[in-house]
Amino acid sequence: MEYFLQQLINGITLGSIYGLIAIGYTMVYGIIGMINFAHGEIFMIGSFIALTTFVALALLGITFLPVVLLIMLIVAMGFTALWGWAVERVAYRPLRGSFRLAPLITAIGMSIFLQNFVQVTQGARVKPLPPQIQGGITLMQGEFVNVQLSYVQILIVVTTVVLMAGFTLLISRTSLGRAQRACEQDAKMASLLGVNVDRTISLTFVMGAGLASVAGLMFLLYYGVIDFYIGFLAGVKAFTAAVLGGIGSLPGAMLGGLAIGLIETFWSGYFSVEYKDVAAFSILAIVLIFMPSGLLGRPEVEKV
């Protein structure tokens, strides 16, 4: 029981991270119908920026943790968002309206480029960050194991919830959100009605990148190590989450993220750690094959 609870807590934490990345996938897929393959790398870039910011702040003598975290968050979001914008501008916008495979290939190319860019500029070695937030609340004293809710986990889940709430408001209440939904339905019509489609799509990428950078920051705090390769796996799993939740649906992405996080931790906890990626990938395949519209997505009817 204690073990189960502990896995549940870990799973929710991991799921929050996946969910934040998944939102970027789902938004981009919703609006331009492509898998932004480089999104996982954007997440990785976010965590690198956060790490560098941390080290720079430490050099400057700023060590008061809440301030440090806040600055890391803001800097990472801002600069990663710029990366998100730039990727869209360089690799996707010139190919808008072109045939479908082209942006997928540029996305893969971008992904390769970004990975190697970070490898070259920051080195291939794993970057450790000593745990910044230590301790936690012991929820339950078991015979063998205690159920621990660490402060990092609380921070991650709370931040995710706050961001999600703000984000949902942004999408449902503002004119930007409306423009986004309009482009999702019919970009051509939206542009005829005066929506700046290019700008809306750019902003979608910016927002997705911003959220991914938060996920990157949390990943850094939670695991304490990052390298240039973390984007690929996290990206594929987050995409799985987006698909599981129903691509195009924001709550779905979050729900899918949680589901993937839970499945992965429980699988590792009860079966085998080695095959945890197989579990995630198999779920992706199974969901797509048997439930292509996901948990909360709209079913697609074949037009004859």
Binding site: I35, V236, V243, D277, V278, F281, L288, P292
Partner: peptide, 24 residues
Amino acid sequence: PVLRLRGDYLAIVTLAFGEIIRVI
């Protein structure tokens, strides 16, 4: 299993299969 999938979904599932084989 992927017969019913289209386009990008097919791509991502085949990617998953490739990774599964590698992990195995």
